[in-house]
């Protein structure tokens, strides 16, 4: 398994862990004591706004830790160039990621046309964003292994 594959897997699993912990935190701190808050748009706005920086900072920290551990364990350096194959794989995985997110976006908007509660739309949006990120990383692993 090369460096890119390992990094993608670390990204995928860290996304799962970050969203899992964040969701649990939000549930315990806000939703558990007051279920009605899920219909409050301000709550969802704050949740989205906090999730983005928290996710970015956590991903950076996890990748630094991964680079250190990988260097110690395998003595493998991070590739210092990104060649045409890397860029092609990146583009293909982003395309998959965008399709998944767009599908999720339409489902989220669709949930508003059917008499669902507004929180269904927000949860669908968060979940599609999460799913698109995961799919992108797994697509990279697939393309690095199977070829493009």
């Amino acid at each position: 398994m090369n460096y890119h594959e390992k990094r993608s897997l670390v990204s995928a699993f860290s996304s799962i862990i970050i969203l899992g912990i964040y969701s649990l935190y939000i549930y315990q701190k806000y939703i558990a004591g007051n279920v009605e808050i899920v219909n409050n748009f301000k709550f969802w706005g704050k949740s989205f706004l906090f999730l983005i920086p928290v996710s970015i900072v956590a991903q950076i920290i996890i990748h630094i830790i991964f680079a250190i551990i990988n260097k110690i364990a395998t003595n493998e350096e991070e590739p210092n160039i990104t060649d045409e194959r890397d860029k092609l794989i990146e583009l293909k995985s982003i395309r998959i990621s965008h399709w998944i997110f767009i599908t999720g976006f339409f489902l989220a908007m669709g949930s508003l046309t059917i008499p669902f509660q507004p929180y269904v739309m927000f949860i669908t949006l968060i979940f599609s964003g999460f799913l698109s990120a995961i799919a992108s990383e797994f697509a990279k692993v697939y393309y690095y292994r199977k070829g493009v």
Partner: peptide, 22 residues
């Protein structure tokens, strides 16, 4: 050639067709 070793491995194994430039 200005690429990573993994790209050369992929080309040799027929898993990647390089661009005309490469």
């Amino acid at each position: 050639a200005g690429v990573t070793r993994q790209t050369i491995v992929a080309i040799e194994n027929g898993k990647y067709s390089p661009t005309l430039e490469l």
